[in-house]
């Protein structure tokens, strides 16, 4: 399984092409949604670029964000994550996994009547920092925690 994984890492370019194709497919049906899919951010392959391209660049660490993740995930294909922001005026919550090939996992825009809380399940390819970034009042904040992964969930 690990050999396969190495093979795919070598072929990262091919994977990028696939993602580009994915973005093209979206254009047909994206009208219902407020904004076009942020292909740039979702195909960034390091966390700094991904955060910048998702408009969370320069996020400052904040203790007012609660990130609940397991210390150890036995299965990287299914890692529960839960984020709560106690920062007033929180308008969006995004999740990043530093060591995934494409760190941006999901970006949730929240209307004013929505609690600054999201719980979901994500995939992790290996042990990594998991970050949650929050936008509130035009500023960005973040919190992170490490999750140890015993079996990876992306591409193997």
């Amino acid at each position: 399984m690990n050999e396969l994984r190495r093979a795919f890492l070598k072929n990262a370019g091919a994977a990028g092409a696939l993602l580009a194709a994915a973005g093209a497919g979206l254009l047909k049906s994206g009208e219902v949604f407020a904004a076009a899919w942020n292909k740039l951010a979702f195909s960034s392959n390091n966390v700094t670029d991904a955060m910048k391209n998702a408009n969370y660049g320069g996020a400052i660490e904040s203790k007012d964000i609660m990130l609940k993740v397991p210390d150890i995930a036995e299965n990287g294909a299914l890692v529960p994550v839960e984020a709560t922001s106690n920062i007033p005026g929180t308008t969006s919550i995004a999740f990043f996994v530093d060591k995934n090939q494409y760190p941006l996992v999901a970006d949730f825009d929240l209307a004013s009547g929505t609690e600054p809380y999201i719980s979901t399940r994500i995939k992790m390819s290996q042990t990594s920092l998991v970050r949650v970034a929050v936008r509130a009042g035009g500023k960005t904040y973040m919190q992170s925690k490490e999750v140890k992964v015993t079996i990876g969930g992306c591409g193997n």
Binding site: L19, F33, A34, A35, W37, N38, F42, A77, L78, V79, E82, V97, N100, Y102, L104, V105, A106, D107, F108, D109, L110, A111, G113, T114, E115, Y117, I118, S119, T120, R121, I122, K123, M124, G153, C154
Partner: peptide
Amino acid sequence: KTVVDAQWGIAVAKNPFINFRIK
């Protein structure tokens, strides 16, 4: 009326589960 508008990448787990709260 829209309460959550999200964009996802490939790393949302299979059979996605989402929990949110609205006032």
